[in-house]
C-alpha cells in the first residue's frame, strides 16, 4: 500500500513538472513574440513570487506539525462519540486542523460512518477539511486580506452546518421510505 502511494506520488511529480515545463515554454514563446510585454509579465510574476516564497516555508512547517501532532486516530476518537451542536463544531474544528488533500479525509469519514457518527458531523468534517484549513487560511489572509478571509470562513461554517443537517435529513428520509417500500 505504501509502495503504491509512493509510486503515485512520483507520477504526480512528473505530471507537475510537465505542467511547469509547458507553462514555461508557452511563456517563453509568447514573450519572444511580444517582447514589449516582458516587463509587465515579469514584474507581476515576481511580485506574486516574492509574496508566496516569504510565507510558503512557514505554511509547510505548520502543515507538517499538524500532520504529526494531530494523527487521524485522534480525530476518529473525538468525533465518533460527539453529538449535537457541540459535535458539529468539533467536527469543523477537527477538519480544520489536520492537513492533506481532501481524498485523505475520505477514509477517515468512512471509518466515522462505520463507527456510527452522525452524517451531519461527517459532512461538516469533510467540508471543513476541504476549505477552511488553518495553514491554508494564512495564505488566504496574505493574498486576499483579513476582511475577505473572515467573511468567507464565517459564511462557510454557517452553510456547512446547514448542508450537513440537510444531507442527514435527506439520507434518513430516503432510508425510511426505502424501508416502507420493502415492508408494504
Amino acid at each position: 500500500m505504501k509502495k503504491m502511494s509512493k509510486e503515485k506520488q512520483k507520477k504526480g511529480l512528473v505530471k507537475d513538472m510537465l505542467f511547469l515545463g509547458i507553462t514555461l515554454a508557452v511563456a517563453v514563446v509568447l514573450l519572444l513574440m511580444f517582447p514589449e510585454k516582458k516587463e509587465l509579465v515579469v514584474s507581476s510574476s515576481k511580485g506574486f513570487f516574492m509574496e508566496m516564497i516569504l510565507i510558503l516555508p512557514a505554511v509547510m512547517i505548520l502543515m507538517g506539525l499538524f500532520a504529526v501532532f494531530v494523527p487521524n486516530d485522534v480525530i476518529v476518537k473525538y468525533l465518533g462519540r460527539s453529538s449535537g451542536i457541540k459535535g458539529i463544531f468539533l467536527a469543523i474544528l477537527m477538519g480544520a486542523f489536520p492537513t492533506g488533500p481532501l481524498y485523505v479525509a475520505f477514509p477517515i469519514a468512512a471509518t466515522l460512518l462505520k463507527k456510527g457518527a452522525r452524517i451531519s458531523n461527517i459532512i461538516a468534517f469533510l467540508s471543513a477539511w476541504a476549505c477552511i484549513k488553518i495553514p491554508q487560511e494564512l495564505v488566504e489572509l496574505q493574498f486576499l486580506g483579513l476582511k475577505f478571509m473572515i467573511t468567507r470562513v464565517v459564511l462557510t461554517v454557517v452553510f456547512v452546518i446547514v448542508m450537513g443537517i440537510a444531507i442527514e435529513q435527506i439520507v434518513l428520509w430516503s432510508e425510511k421510505t426505502n424501508k416502507h417500500e420493502q415492508t408494504s
Binding site: 506520488q9 511529480l13 507537475d16 513538472m17 505542467f19 511547469l20 507553462t23 514555461l24 508557452v26 511563456a27 509568447l30 511580444f34 510585454k37 516582458k38 509587465l40 509579465v41 515579469v42 507581476s44 510574476s45 515576481k46 506574486f48 513570487f49 508566496m52 510558503l56 516555508p57 509547510m60 512547517i61 502543515m63 507538517g64 506539525l65 500532520a67 504529526v68
Partner: peptide, 26 residues
Amino acid sequence: MAVISFFRIFPTVLAIIIIIGLLSGF
C-alpha cells in the same frame, strides 16, 4: 514532511505564478 511537501508543491506554485504573469501581460 515540511521540506518534502515544499519541494512537492513548488513546481505547481511556479507554474501558477508564471500563468499569473502571463494573465496580467496578455
